[in-house]
Write a protein that binds this DNA or RNA. Sequence first.
DNA 1: TGCAATTAAATTGTAAACGATTTAAAGTTA
DNA 2: TAACTTTAAATCGTTTACAATTTAATTGCA
Lengths: 145, 145
Amino acid sequence: MNNKDYLKLDNQLCFAVYTCSKEIIRLYRPFLDKLGITYTHYITLLVLWETDPIPFKKLCNHLYLDSGTMTPVLKSMEKKGLLTRSRMENDERQISISLTQLGRELKEQAATIPLQMLCRTQLSPEEANTLRDTLHRLLKQLPQA
Amino acid sequence: MNNKDYLKLDNQLCFAVYTCSKEIIRLYRPFLDKLGITYTHYITLLVLWETDPIPFKKLCNHLYLDSGTMTPVLKSMEKKGLLTRSRMENDERQISISLTQLGRELKEQAATIPLQMLCRTQLSPEEANTLRDTLHRLLKQLPQA
DNA sequence: TGCAATTAAATTGTAAACGATTTAAAGTTA
DNA sequence: TAACTTTAAATCGTTTACAATTTAATTGCA
């Protein structure tokens, strides 16, 4: 690559990732609107559908989001009746997040979303898996600090 | 893939893209802090360093950002003295964006960022290019609506 | 035990990000 | 030419996102 091309927008890996992220999340909207939730709510529920209850900090780590982001998100989800937040008995600093019945029931309605979204990416399941694995590998090898 | 695995967080392509995007942008911070700009300012400058002046709408299209996002971004960059915004003579609805001398000069200071960032991804140039091209292809084939 | 250090979540301030609406200019047509 | 439509950017409201700080609980240790 020519030296002067390094600053071209279309050569930036980050911009490609960043734009794909936003555009894919935009495609979730019609599906998530039906459930009355946002993408952030959705990924929060994905974690909780796997692990319920879960400590606040663990949830944040899974989602790569910090307390400044998650505290208001979880409060709004609590307000919607999707989950409850409670202090842990053995350590009053920690918060435990649990799904409500409503939060658990949403899982059924969400069950068809992943395949419909895969369809919208126009990728074969194999291509999607390969790309996802590449990104996971990249994520792992990024410097933490 | 087992049917019940579709809703697992780690199987979601979107979440992998979304998380990579945020983590890579976080790695830009030390570099951009030195220039006193944000990542959004940076990609705006990347476009302007290639095309100057440029119509507002064209800039938005390049960046996949809408007027609601870009109007305040460009106003803040104007305030910093990086660019100027002016109505077009032949069509008073349109805004033309031009770099200032300061905005042009930043390009030199930014010249080393892309290679330093590539280094931080721990990817070979070939791997990075392949991944970027895959994402561009995906972006192109996503439904517009 | 008592106090410093650490840890966890909340809070604060700033900057995106985007859908929906508004305002104003330009184009279209009856 | 006047009314309607379209287009462009700005504005508004809501939700993320994160760095930095604060508050409160716990842990370590002198």
